[in-house]
Design a protein around this nucleic acid. Structure first.
Lengths: 325, 325
DNA sequence: TTGAAAGCGTTACCAA
DNA sequence: TTGGTAACGCTTTCAA
């Protein structure tokens, strides 16, 4: 390993001087600077971030905690974050929590132990004061409270929008899928939909689902039609489930959207590839990731006047599982 | 920040002793040990990994380089890796290369600068000797050469299997999609399919695609039917494209699998949710991740007799885009 | 404008 | 069985 000492020796100066040209601070003569840079090049030197981090008590690492990157919504978030923090030279330490408190705690500890400059967390356990003692900039993403800077999309409005749209388009017997109880955004959109449905004379039923996974999606779809065979409008808990429902409905010989309308949630990339393409409520995942990263970066730089809460808009994407008229 | 010094003071011993109980090596009296552990608990101490890493010249971090986590094949790989390295206390530094050499180099530098114990890379640039100078255990994943320990699935056989299956099931005018030229596994499966097709009297055409992205998938599907409207069997470059083709075929009024059979590649989770469910060649992504992680762990521990190359089997998953009998 | 040296939090060697 | 201390690679203060 090439260290700053090697460079200093090669250039015939002290390590202090090398450090100065490395960090572009302090006085360094033009001549010396060139000598040092030349030495760095010939030795192909690159500074040890660990040593830097130890001294500064701060690394160039950012901790990212996600529920499960296998759920297609999260990779987009992650890319939004990665692409923007990279521009400032930061890198990501990634953890999947599987919504488990213990894993979350473990990862937080890892982040702290590695002197991350900041963390971004999409978690359900904020209320448990896990993050309070930490002296590290934190941005909450997707899952939110008002205790910390947060970026989220307007789930309540998303739910309302889904319900309103379905009603407008003539659904009469709506089934509303409720996502996992411990997942806050799932509850928001659920409540939003209930808000709207309650104000109408339309019949609706609620089907509780307790996971978002691919494996289970098919099961929820089957359960849906067993319990509510006559439903003509479904508000799915997310796109994955929405796609599973399309599938099951087609299998049962229902025509979409004539007999049955479906609205998904998220607008994951594959939802435009379903057949028929899934109408859905879009959350701008990549942009949310970007926004969270920017917020974190600002907090790290202690920029003043940082908006501490950013609500991203939600949008109805009309495709072919809802009626046109 | 609580340091080892604080613990030492609290317990009334030296830092050396604390370090010994921390690492469970060296002699420590029972009594002393208890005192120290108590002090650690009351102070809620957890060791600074950065300092450790500096001294040991080795962190508990593993660098993971993926092309793009937004492609559903990779999150599975990543989870397989994460879940297994976590068991040994390692954490992941994640980078997406977008198949760009420069990003790849940047991430490798980051990994080195952070003293990672090892790296796992799914990359196309091995041949450029990027990794040669590194004195860090490396496992190649999915994209492979024989210069390094690798885990990959048998792409050649996958291609053959796809072609054989389609022929068996009666396709007469096969279209073979060729993935991006610089992506090695894509070429393997392509060659495998050509191997088989060339030996038969069946007509086939080749459609070159230059990306795997969702956005482009629809375009490839349209191009396919413009150029080869009469094809009755498609070997898609991956499941995403496969699903896009289903979609386009249905839009054009083709019956699947009667008029057109389709075989995908990868078996990403959403391929069972397409309509009709996509028949495909499965790569065991999660298991590949596990295997790569285990290989890396063994290399790190310098375990003897490590198989340096692991070829994972590929499998035809029969669903509804191929004919039954 | 430069260099010497202390210090960041650990570990491991050597001495006691 | 324990403690003192050098060392890991770097940054920064202080003095020259």
């Amino acid at each position: 390993m090439i260290t700053i000492k090697d460079v200093a020796r090669e250039a015939g100066v002290s390590v202090a001087t090398v450090s100065r040209v490395l960090n572009e601070n302090g006085y360094v003569g033009e001549e010396t600077k060139k000598k040092v840079q030349k030495a760095m090049n010939t030795l192909n030197y690159s500074p040890n971030e660990v040593a830097r981090s130890l001294y500064k008590r701060e690394s160039k690492l950012i901790g990212l905690l996600l529920p499960d990157i296998t759920n297609p919504f999260f990779p987009q978030l992650a890319r939004g974050i990665e692409d923007t923090v990279n521009q400032s030279g930061y890198r990501l330490l990634l953890g999947n929590s599987d919504e488990e408190l213990e894993k979350e705690l473990d990862y937080i500890q890892t982040f702290v132990q590695n002197n991350v400059v900041g963390m971004i967390s999409a978690t359900n356990h904020v209320d448990q004061n896990i993050y309070d003692a930490l002296q590290i900039p934190l941005v909450l993403l997707d899952r939110t409270t008002d205790q910390y800077p947060s970026v989220y999309s307007d789930g309540r409005e998303g739910g309302r929008l889904a319900a309103r749209t379905l009603i407008e388009k003539g659904a009469k017997r709506i089934t509303l899928m409720k996502g996992p109880a411990h997942v806050k955004p799932a509850q928001d959109r659920f409540k939003g939909a209930v808000d709207v449905l309650s104000e109408t004379d339309i019949d609706f039923s609620v089907l509780a689902t307790t996971s978002y996974s691919f494996e289970d999606a098919k099961g929820w779809a089957e359960e849906l039609f067993q319990k509510y065979p006559n439903t003509d409008g479904v508000i799915a808990s997310n796109d994955i489930v929405g796609i599973a429902i399309i599938h099951e409905a087609l299998r049962l010989g229902k025509r979409i959207p004539e007999d049955l309308q479906i609205i998904g949630y998220d607008d994951i990339p594959q939802s435009s590839l379903s057949y028929p393409p899934l109408s859905t409520i879009r959350q701008p995942a990549y942009e949310m990731g970007q926004a969270a990263a920017e917020l974190l970066l600002q907090t790290i730089k202690k920029e003043p006047g940082v908006e501490t809460t950013i609500e991203m808009p939600v949008e109805f994407i009309e495709r072919d599982t809802t009626r046109k008229e």
